[in-house]
Nucleic acid binder design. Sequence first.
DNA 1: TTTACTGCAAAGGGTTTGCATGAGG
DNA 2: CCTCATGCAAACCCTTTGCAGTAAA
Lengths: 149, 149
Amino acid sequence: MMQNAVVQQLRQGGVRVTPQRLAIAEAVLNSSDHPTVQQIHERVQQHFPSMTLATVYSTLGVLSKSGLIQELPFAKQSRYESNVLPHVNLVCVGCGNITDADDGSEIIVRLREQVASETGFQAMWQRVDFHGWCPACTAGQPETASAAD
Amino acid sequence: MMQNAVVQQLRQGGVRVTPQRLAIAEAVLNSSDHPTVQQIHERVQQHFPSMTLATVYSTLGVLSKSGLIQELPFAKQSRYESNVLPHVNLVCVGCGNITDADDGSEIIVRLREQVASETGFQAMWQRVDFHGWCPACTAGQPETASAAD
DNA sequence: TTTACTGCAAAGGGTTTGCATGAGG
DNA sequence: CCTCATGCAAACCCTTTGCAGTAAA
């Protein structure tokens, strides 16, 4: 069961496992839309109505330091990523949606190796964002939900 | 003269060319340390003592929209990039310095093409950050200036 | 039982906005 | 001249912090 993996990784970091933390972890890990703090809060509040934003912020910090998720700072606010493996984020400037590209991971890994061998920089993790137009927004300018960052 | 290129690109965007804007553009374009808004403000204030942060923010927005510079949002604050060509940013988690990798541009361009052909996503620009340890910080943990974002 | 987390409220700080004055084209 | 940029101050909002009560181990 996936929950066990989360529990283990949290305990390994010496932090307490609470129902709130599990709910927040699950909310992010089961998402693929790179939710904002507000969105995560709204989703988790359905199960924990009294949970505040402070707890969400605190927990997202814990989860990031534990390596379970990744924070993606944008100009207006941060979004959160469940895919900690090397990949490309596709950020649409039209609708604001952020999706993961299905491939590109091998190229990123190779790029890391190349940079490491030529500059001596030891990368621990990376962020690769492509900003542009998703297929839907390229076709006909659709209902522009909200401009991206 | 480089200033003329800046002037042209600003006029092309239909924005006015003022001494303040040229000074801010020059401050960023002549930098390679990816300065913060505060740092840009301090540097430009040496020539324009009455300039406020509001003008710096406003102008950086204009320069970004004109394609002369690029904003790099981080968790704590944004930094600004003078290199708008495809490249890798090396963000050191030890000293907080950000440098441009000398190579990798070809690989990034190829990655863009691959993603475009396989997903239909039309990238207009990209951001590639590698987070890790620079050679100096890898050697002996030196004077940790300020932890990176 | 001990230590750390939650929830609440208030503070913090980077960024934006409104408005009067001043400068660009 | 007319429009837009600058400078100043105040507002905004995302994020952090302090503290009392509470739950994890």
